[in-house]
Design a protein around this nucleic acid. Sequence first.
DNA 1: CTAGCACTCATTGTTCAACAAACATAGACG
DNA 2: CGTCTATGTTTGTTGAACAATGAGTGCTAG
Lengths: 212, 212
Amino acid sequence: MNHDSSLVNRLTDRLIAGELRPGERLSETALAKEFDVSRNTLREAFRVLGEQGLVTHIPHRGVSVASPSTADVVDIYRVRHHVECSVLEHAPRNHPNAVRMEAAVEAAERFAAEENWLEVGTANMAFHNAVVSLSDSRRLMQSFSNVLAELRLAFLKVEVLDFLHAPFISRNKEVIEVYRTEGSAAAAKILGAYLGDSERQVLGAYARAGQD
Amino acid sequence: MNHDSSLVNRLTDRLIAGELRPGERLSETALAKEFDVSRNTLREAFRVLGEQGLVTHIPHRGVSVASPSTADVVDIYRVRHHVECSVLEHAPRNHPNAVRMEAAVEAAERFAAEENWLEVGTANMAFHNAVVSLSDSRRLMQSFSNVLAELRLAFLKVEVLDFLHAPFISRNKEVIEVYRTEGSAAAAKILGAYLGDSERQVLGAYARAGQD
DNA sequence: CTAGCACTCATTGTTCAACAAACATAGACG
DNA sequence: CGTCTATGTTTGTTGAACAATGAGTGCTAG
């Protein structure tokens, strides 16, 4: 995805894989040693991750893996509503990137069959990134991708990947189907409802987990 | 605006003030000396500015002030359409932050009277940031703010601040007026047309300036 | 016993000097 | 005229060092 600084990639990989858990403190010296880089280069990587929202930086207290609060989840879903729905609503009828959406759904189904929920989640992210790619806007895709990555940390925080992802594969398919047959506006409505339900599920999981 | 790392602020101030011109190469040693910081800290600041799109970083070739191409301008206006229109369309009837929009317009009028076009541009940015603030989403505001800052670099690049900003003050007022009287949906339509015209103006200026 | 306080220790913030690696420039050469 | 090489400059990265801040500890006084 990012073809720049390999260090940022290595860190994001660990983050979205859940190997660095939300809220976990990231010691500079420890991580520098682990990734075999100097503290200074690690700090540069921290700054970009911080700007992407994957990591929280508090001056003189170091950085931790972002640990989205319920307020953050609500905020993230606000972004999703505005961006995803608006893009889908105004998408041209047969946008080439629709195949990306289909590919993502197929991948999700494959991984769901294997009960590999982490990869199902990745495929789900790919689906929604594909939706936003219908905008043909690099910046929109970039910003949105960051927000989705942050949302994944929210999923990891409450540790119920299966329950959160499984029911939504079929709804992804429905979005594609409606987009193909009835057009953008109808599909955007479906997607909006989808997102509302998804948000409720996540917030419910937060409440059950007793998280803030 | 940003109350974190003072260095990033100092740099962004110089950038949006046009003192560091679009495309200008930013030498690490030179800038480090000028801002009286070490190369390493400057590089950390470069990473966040790079992530914000204000600065372009090419490995082994250093960073330059972002110099948006016409493709970038088109991309930026795509973001603006999706974000601003969607937010305004779904904004509640009497959102408290509407006063921010009005304050921005008044500031723009004051500065226009003084023919201080740089500050008119700043006030215009404040207006559109205020529009997005109707979403009550921190992330949407943050991302959007970055995109607007990048657009200002586009204005600075073609050096026609007055021509680009002056005609749009009244249209800002119109957006507020329609939002107050006819509601969100109507205002969003007006704003959409506004943005379309604005985009054409900027692209026209690019063409006249013979820029890519 | 507990609240407050000084002290200690660990971590981050920042700088500096050094070197490797990539790039840009200029001059030599065919 | 174009290409290649040599040289110099800039970035990428490191390690060590020190200052500044925060966190934890144990002491003291009430």
